[in-house]
Amino acid sequence: MRYRGMTCRSNAIGADFHIIRVIPGRMDFLRRLKPHHLRLIVRIADTGKLQVAASALAMSQPAASRILTDIEADSGAQLFIRHPKGMEPTQAGTAFVKHARSVLNALDSLESEVGGINMGQAGEVRVGSVTGPAIKCLVPALLEVKRASPKIEPTFAVGPSVDLVRGLEARRFDFVIARLPPDYDSRDFQLLPARSEVISLLVHARHPLAGAKGLTLEALTEFGWVIQERGSPIRQAVETAFAEAGIRPPSNITNSSSMLVVLSLLRESDTVAPVSAEVAGLLTQPPLSADLRVLDLAVPMTVAPYFLIRHRSQQLSRAAETLMRGVLARL
């Protein structure tokens, strides 16, 4: 069998390949082409004048003429027909101009994108957060950054601290807003200012205790609760609050981290749902405000502080740094 640039000799054992010829002239031609060469050809096609094209690119006419001659010699084709009134692309010239425009557009796009990334005005940002600060800090910071730099492409996840820190360690996130689990070495991470999270107890507007003032935890034990699984910060905070008050915790508990499940139970029953104050604030705004209420507790519940966490060995992009500064300003 014969292929372009090589031969293949088959036998009973296998096939031997022998390189016969690599078309050096064409490869040299491609290596010698520079962006300003392509711009010259495109400008000649647009203006029909070599002198005008050369002047627009700040080069002398003899230099432009020499570049055009070299390109035509290397490509083996005449690119322009010279007329007294100007220069007209040949069929080969038309093809050259078409591909030159495509290459130049790609280079311009690359230059713009890299410049934007270097200036923090473009690029991807990957962040994660527990629920409360995602609403209070991350979303507002993200909107502000997007207004100033709409080409920044953020991706963010909301989840439990264990999953977020695991993702940070695996470099799936630039930074996270979370609590550092006890089995992680804090020396591997940079933990920036902490903020405590307040718990709100959500109920339906028809709940018997909706509107009551200064409620004690004892008044809530007879109702069903929907709450995150054991080990979650909110679950721990609720159990601690009942223990410190010397009251047995509620026995009628549904375990779920799904907000859809929480909302369904609140709508259909007298369930009590502990959520972060930021989530409660969002859910009690119109149009949901007519359906949900926050119970007024005599003693507020708080969760262990969360931090903005980044890995010490990971260098942030300018875009990630910009978003991080916006988040820190709101913590």
Score class of each variant (00 low, 15 high):
residue 5 G to I: 14
residue 7 T to D: 15
residue 8 C to S: 14
residue 13 I to P: 03
residue 17 F to H: 12
residue 19 I to Y: 09
residue 22 V to G: 02
residue 26 R to N: 06
residue 33 L to F: 04
residue 36 H to R: 14
residue 38 L to I: 11
residue 39 R to E: 09
residue 42 V to W: 08
residue 47 T to R: 07
residue 52 V to H: 09
residue 52 V to P: 01
residue 57 L to W: 04
residue 63 A to T: 13
residue 68 L to H: 01
residue 72 E to F: 01
residue 74 D to S: 05
residue 75 S to G: 15
residue 76 G to T: 06
residue 89 P to I: 04
residue 94 T to V: 14
residue 103 V to E: 10
residue 109 S to N: 12
residue 112 S to I: 12
residue 116 G to A: 03
residue 119 M to S: 13
residue 123 G to F: 03
residue 126 R to H: 10
residue 128 G to K: 00
residue 130 V to D: 02
residue 132 G to R: 00
residue 132 G to M: 00
residue 134 A to L: 09
residue 135 I to L: 15
residue 136 K to H: 14
residue 137 C to H: 12
residue 138 L to G: 00
residue 143 L to N: 13
residue 145 V to C: 10
residue 146 K to A: 11
residue 148 A to K: 14
residue 148 A to P: 04
residue 151 K to H: 10
residue 153 E to P: 00
residue 154 P to I: 06
residue 155 T to D: 04
residue 155 T to H: 08
residue 157 A to I: 12
residue 161 S to C: 05
residue 162 V to F: 07
residue 163 D to M: 05
residue 170 A to T: 01
residue 173 F to P: 00
residue 185 D to N: 14
residue 186 S to T: 13
residue 192 L to A: 07
residue 196 S to P: 01
residue 201 L to T: 01
residue 202 L to C: 02
residue 204 H to D: 07
residue 207 H to L: 09
residue 216 T to L: 15
residue 216 T to R: 11
residue 220 L to Q: 03
residue 221 T to H: 03
residue 222 E to R: 10
residue 223 F to Y: 15
residue 224 G to Q: 11
residue 226 V to Q: 08
residue 228 Q to D: 15
residue 228 Q to T: 14
residue 229 E to L: 11
residue 235 R to D: 04
residue 237 A to I: 00
residue 241 A to L: 02
residue 245 A to G: 02
residue 246 G to L: 09
residue 249 P to Q: 10
residue 250 P to T: 01
residue 256 S to E: 04
residue 257 S to D: 11
residue 258 S to T: 07
residue 260 L to F: 05
residue 261 V to K: 06
residue 262 V to W: 08
residue 265 L to F: 13
residue 267 R to W: 13
residue 271 T to H: 08
residue 273 A to H: 05
residue 274 P to T: 05
residue 275 V to K: 03
residue 285 Q to N: 12
residue 286 P to T: 07
residue 287 P to V: 09
residue 287 P to A: 06
residue 294 V to G: 02
residue 296 D to S: 12
residue 297 L to H: 02
residue 301 M to K: 00
residue 302 T to Q: 10
residue 303 V to D: 01
residue 307 F to T: 05
residue 311 H to A: 12
residue 316 L to Y: 06
residue 330 R to L: 13
